[in-house]
Each structure stands twice: as C-alpha cells, then as structure tokens.
Design a protein around this nucleic acid. Structure first.
Lengths: 118, 118
DNA sequence: CAGCATCCCCACTGATACTG
DNA sequence: CAGTATCAGTGGGGATGCTG
C-alpha cells in the first residue's frame, strides 16, 4: 500500500489508513468481536480472499488490528481490533450514520421525483 | 470517479465520498469558511490545480459542497460546505484527532527506540 | 482568476490456481 | 482452514500547456 512519504496534516495519516476499498467494512465487522479469516470472508459480501488477506496485513502493519494464530490443527486464526483500531472505529461509526442519513435523503428525493414533485 | 453500483452498507457510501486523496483536506479547509479556487490551492500544500478542480466537482456532485459564481470581472468563485458537508466534516474532524494521537504515539516509540529502550 | 484538454504511469483491485 | 503466487485491467493521480 502506498503511503505518503510525509504528512502535511495528521488527518492524512488516518485517511491513508482507511482508504482501501474494504478497510472500513473489515473494521466494522471486527468491532463486533474477534473473527477468523473465513468468518470475515463470509460476513463481507463480494470480497475476495486475496483482498481480504491483503487488507488485513495492511491493517496489521498500521497497528489497527492484531492477530492470534494457532499453529496446530485445526488451523485457526483470530483477528481483532487494537485500542487504536477501536478509536478508528469511532470515525467509521460516524461514517455509517452519515451514510444512513444520506440514503434516507436520497430515497426521499427519488420519491419526490417519482411523484413529479421535484 | 468510480462509485460502487450498489451498496451493501451505508458506510460504503460515505467512504466512497471521501476516499479521494485530497478530499478530506479540501473539506477541512472549507470548514473554516467559503473559499475561492486559488485560495484553496494556496492552502493545500502539494495539490495541483487539476486535482483540486476534479475533486471539487466530485464533491459538488455528491452534494457535499456548493458553489457560487460571479460571471463578471473580476472572475470570482466561492466554494462552501453544504449541510451534508458539515456533517461529513464531523467525521473528518475525528480522523484529524485520531491522526494527532497516532503521530504522538509514533513519536514516542521513535524516541524510545532512539534511546535503546524499545 | 477559474478551469479544461492531453498524455502517461502505476497502485489498487480482482480472478484464478496452488500450498501447508 | 489459512493463506501465497501470478497475471491482467482500469482508473486515480500527476505534469504540463491552453482557453475565456
């Protein structure tokens, strides 16, 4: 993942961390509790395993998530949010509520347009 | 700008809107008050005029910012945050504070490493 | 001052197949 | 189950120059 070599503003750092297409969803899922790779894959519709693993590794590098591995059989791994990750989830959570508001507004606009009122 | 054709989660909508490299910074600047193109260009270090105009247009399309134009001379335009934009600024603002915390933590780590304590 | 038109590169994404 | 390897498409980002 390409990060800026230097930051003009702290804001850019947070933005770089969550800018991947699937990162907010991964963080969202992990906020519900630790999860295995396969469980995450099932819960995030449309993500390929490669992209999931790649984004997980990037989040690991940034200290947003942590990982526990059981080397024996059955193979088992668990990803979870770190404290930093939980703080970032605060921002993600707000993005979620803004998204909900926007969808409601857009639906309302569509409804009015349908009725020829807009 | 490439948006998802459909959203599994409202979160993705907000994420798509602010995912551009310069969008958080533009919103950050506009939160201080309406601004002209050239003023924005000056206040955002490293942005090219093309990228600035492009991102502004995308934000206009999403209803995050608005624009006032004066066609006469001297040429003058003013961009500003809409209500939706102000709500999104709420999320941006949190990203900023998280960024500050992360930079402080990282600096602290670097400091400890320098001293051979980590 | 405000903004468009071109050309180019590479990072992000993704499909698919393989390994321990 | 939990990954790695390979190959390919595309669009986001940037440099530069032109227009009203």
């Amino acid at each position: 993942m390409k990060m800026r070599s230097q930051y003009t503003c702290p804001l850019e750092m947070t933005h770089d961390i969550i800018k991947g297409k699937w990162k907010p969803l991964i963080i969202w899922q992990l906020s519900k509790g630790g999860s295995s790779l396969s469980a995450l894959k099932k819960s995030i519709r449309g993500i390929s395993q490669k992209m999931l693993v790649q984004h997980l590794n990037e989040l690991l590098e940034c200290g947003v998530i942590g990982k526990l591995t059981n080397d024996g059989y059955p193979l088992k791994s668990e990803y979870f949010l770190t404290e930093r990750g939980k703080r970032i989830f605060g921002a993600i959570s707000i993005m979620q509520s803004i998204g909900i508001e926007m969808m409601l507004e857009d639906d309302r606009e569509d409804f009015l347009k349908e009725k020829g009122l807009l």
